[in-house]
Amino acid sequence: MRDADPSTNEREFLLAALKDGARIDGRKFYDFRTLRLTFGAEYGAVEVQLGNTRVLAKVSCEVIRPYTDKPTEGFLMFNTELSPMASAAFEVGRQTDEEVLVSRLIEKAMRRSRALDTEGLCIVAGEKVWSIRVDIHFLDHDGNLVDAACIAAITALLHFRRPDVTVVGEDVTIHTLEQRNPVPLSIHHIPICTTFAFFNNGERMIVDPSFLEEQVKEGDMTVTLNVHKEVCALSKAGGIPMEIDQILQCTKIAVVKVAEITAQIQAALEADAKKR
């Protein structure tokens, strides 16, 4: 089932409102929707709600043999299949362009920015390394899947604890959660995506577009930053051409947003740690 295009009335109303300086859900141009983080009972399970967009991330690990050319490198894998639960437009077993873009962006933001220390996942060089798997389940699609997925993935990785191991000579013992306290992953920095949508020939830009806004937009751009004001990834796949100044302005707005979101993630993690 394809998503129905918004009616002319809806489209015109949204564009007219934007021209008058308002968004239809009452947000300011550079506001995110309310972000809610819920942790599961086990380590590494996080449900993220960004307004009506809902994403579940689950981290799991296993011990595998590394590649021979990189004997000390652990693995980090993402599974970002779009489920038809999020929208009936997503079909099982058929990748849409949107799905490819979303998974590529997550990959770039998290793996290629070296957010996770993969060398730290090595147990015995050339023999055994940890493979960390992040399953991202999209439950409800109300726009901006990328930002929600990115927040879910990094929060789940921060929340996750892997079993402790001891190596004596050639013998490797993996301790169960009851035997020894599990250990957190070593994470270098927290990359956070901020997505912008452009309207009115690129003159009007907004943060965190909703589904309707995504359908009407002229172009979009995703900036991935961390709190140290470092750009981890930047993606502008098509859409209307932009001026360089605007891109700079986007990154400046993103810096503020990233600081807010990072603070919220850390506060949520601390609150959860106290409960355990």
Partner: peptide, 23 residues
């Protein structure tokens, strides 16, 4: 729970939880 589906529900037996959507 979900706004895009026509119907949705979550059911838990203790720490087992399943979400279901219907279109």
């Amino acid at each position: 729970l979900l706004n895009r589906a026509d119907g949705s529900a979550q059911f838990d037996f203790g720490e087992s939880s399943v979400m279901c959507s219907v279109v």
